[in-house]
Simulated scan of single mutants.
Amino acid sequence: MGKKVLKHIIDEEVSLRMFTEDDLEEFYNLIFNSKIHLKKWVTWVDSVEKQEDAEESLKLRIEALLESGGYPMWFAVIYKGEIAGTIGFNDIDKTNRVGEELGYWLGEKFQRKGIMLRAFKAVINYGFKDLGLNKIEAYIAAGNGRSKALPERFGFLEEGRIRQAEWLYDHYEDEIIYGLLAEEYLS
Rank of each mutant, 00 (worst) to 15 (best):
I177R: 09
L102H: 01
Y185W: 07
N144H: 15
N96H: 15
A84D: 01
G2I: 08
R61F: 10
L60R: 11
E12L: 10
L16E: 05
K94S: 14
D46E: 08
R61A: 08
M116G: 04
A84G: 03
F154S: 14
G81C: 11
E158G: 03
E137K: 15
S15D: 02
N29S: 15
T95S: 15
I83P: 03
K135V: 01
S57V: 07
W44R: 14
H37T: 04
K3W: 02
T43R: 10
F156G: 02
Y139N: 11
E183I: 03
N144D: 13
D23F: 07
E184Y: 05
H37V: 00
L30Q: 04
K109M: 07
E101F: 09
Q51Y: 09
R163K: 09
L117K: 14
W74E: 10
F128I: 01
L131W: 02
M116N: 05
E175D: 07
A76G: 12
G88Y: 01
P72L: 05
I83Y: 08
E25L: 03
A138P: 04
G85N: 05
L157R: 12
V14C: 13
D22L: 11
L58N: 00
Y71D: 10
E184K: 14
V14A: 11
L6H: 15
E63M: 12
K129W: 00
L117C: 12
I162Q: 06
G103C: 09
I87C: 11
A76N: 01
D130A: 06
